[in-house]
Amino acid sequence: MEWPGLYNYWIAIFLMMAGLYIVIAQQNLIKKMVGLSVFQASVFILYITMGKVTGGTAPIIIPGDDVLYSNPLPHVLILTAIVVGVATLALGLAIIVRIYEAYGSIEEDDIEKEEENAR
């Protein structure tokens, strides 16, 4: 099995796990959102590399020529996913801003402490 073999998947998995780690282990809510976007970008990389054909070019038809094109389908799916990702990011950040207004903090343990005190 010669280079690059399966390394494209492994890079995507590494970035994915880094994003997951940020989401689980960090306490700061904004950092969690950054982790989510890292995770998202890794999924994009996974899909886009699957669509690549060796020796292929971007899927814009050159008339009359016999050219090898990469697969356009993952590109379309990921275009949609990027835009939806920004919509969810904006929503998450709006919720964080509301949490900050209500609790005065965007750290998870501070918010939990506040909840305990209120009870």
């Binding site: 959102m33 994009f44 886009i48 971007a58 094109y69 275009l79 835009v83």
Partner: peptide, 24 residues
């Protein structure tokens, strides 16, 4: 070879997302 995705990622991922996060 995903030129369209690259456009969108540069404009939306690197541009709009960063602006939104800075706003937050």
């Amino acid at each position: 070879d995903a030129v369209d995705v690259a456009f969108t990622e540069a404009a939306v991922g690197a541009g709009v997302s960063t602006v939104l996060m800075l706003g937050a």
